[in-house]
Amino acid sequence: MIPERSGLIVWINDIKSSRVLERYGTVHYVSKKMHYVLLYVDAVKEKKVVQDIQKLPFVKKIEKSLRNEIKTEYNSNIPDKTRFYTI
């Protein structure tokens, strides 16, 4: 069974320190230009990990990713108009 994961966006001062975040979860993406790291952690351990990461000296702020709250199943009530444009 796959554990429930939650995403954290961690804003950092320098890119080299992003390697330290690998011990807290799975680093999915590192933005060199905007200086943030997308980190996935277990949902059960999320609060503990956020507290530990905030104590690090190179972390500016932490945001919770809202990807789990976005609706990904779409309803197609609109009729398909491509059948009207056949040759």
Score class of each variant (00 low, 15 high):
residue 48 K to H: 14
residue 21 L to D: 08
residue 46 E to K: 15
residue 41 V to A: 03
residue 58 F to M: 15
residue 47 K to R: 15
residue 23 R to Y: 01
residue 21 L to N: 07
residue 24 Y to R: 08
residue 53 I to A: 01
residue 35 H to P: 01
residue 34 M to T: 08
residue 22 E to A: 08
residue 45 K to R: 15
residue 24 Y to M: 09
residue 32 K to L: 10
residue 32 K to T: 04
residue 51 Q to L: 11
residue 47 K to C: 08
residue 24 Y to T: 14
residue 24 Y to E: 07
residue 47 K to D: 14
residue 45 K to H: 15
residue 26 T to D: 06
residue 31 S to Q: 01
residue 42 D to Q: 12
residue 21 L to E: 05
residue 50 V to N: 08
residue 35 H to I: 04
residue 49 V to Q: 04
residue 25 G to Y: 07
residue 58 F to I: 11
residue 38 L to Y: 10
residue 38 L to A: 13
residue 23 R to M: 09
residue 49 V to F: 01
residue 34 M to L: 10
residue 37 V to D: 02
residue 54 Q to F: 05
residue 27 V to W: 04
residue 38 L to N: 11
residue 21 L to F: 05
residue 56 L to K: 00
residue 32 K to D: 12
residue 25 G to V: 14
residue 49 V to N: 02
residue 31 S to E: 06
residue 34 M to F: 09
residue 34 M to R: 09
residue 33 K to D: 10
residue 53 I to L: 02
residue 51 Q to N: 06
residue 45 K to A: 13
residue 49 V to A: 04
residue 55 K to W: 02
residue 46 E to W: 06
residue 23 R to K: 08
residue 35 H to T: 01
residue 41 V to D: 07
residue 26 T to G: 01
residue 34 M to E: 10
residue 29 Y to A: 03
residue 25 G to H: 10
residue 54 Q to R: 15
residue 25 G to N: 15
residue 26 T to V: 10
residue 26 T to P: 01
residue 56 L to F: 11
residue 49 V to R: 00
residue 34 M to Y: 11
residue 42 D to L: 11
residue 26 T to W: 11
residue 46 E to D: 14
residue 31 S to D: 09
residue 28 H to I: 07
residue 35 H to C: 07
residue 38 L to P: 00
residue 31 S to N: 08
residue 32 K to Q: 13
residue 26 T to A: 03
residue 34 M to G: 02
residue 27 V to P: 01
residue 58 F to A: 13
residue 54 Q to I: 15
residue 44 V to F: 12
residue 39 L to Q: 07
residue 36 Y to G: 14
residue 38 L to M: 11
residue 29 Y to C: 02
residue 30 V to M: 06
residue 52 D to P: 01
residue 52 D to V: 02
residue 49 V to L: 02
residue 34 M to H: 09
residue 40 Y to G: 00
residue 22 E to H: 05
residue 36 Y to R: 07
residue 56 L to R: 00
residue 48 K to Q: 13
residue 35 H to E: 10
residue 52 D to W: 00
residue 55 K to Y: 01
residue 57 P to N: 12
residue 56 L to H: 08
residue 43 A to C: 05
residue 46 E to N: 15
residue 34 M to S: 09
residue 42 D to I: 10
residue 48 K to A: 14
residue 57 P to S: 14
residue 46 E to M: 15
residue 51 Q to V: 03
residue 49 V to M: 05
residue 41 V to N: 05
residue 32 K to F: 12
residue 28 H to L: 03
residue 39 L to W: 03
residue 41 V to R: 01
residue 39 L to K: 08
residue 53 I to Y: 00
residue 26 T to R: 09
residue 31 S to G: 04
residue 52 D to Y: 01
residue 31 S to V: 03
residue 52 D to R: 00
residue 30 V to L: 07
residue 38 L to G: 08
residue 40 Y to V: 06
residue 52 D to I: 00
residue 25 G to T: 13
residue 31 S to W: 04
residue 46 E to Y: 07
residue 38 L to D: 00
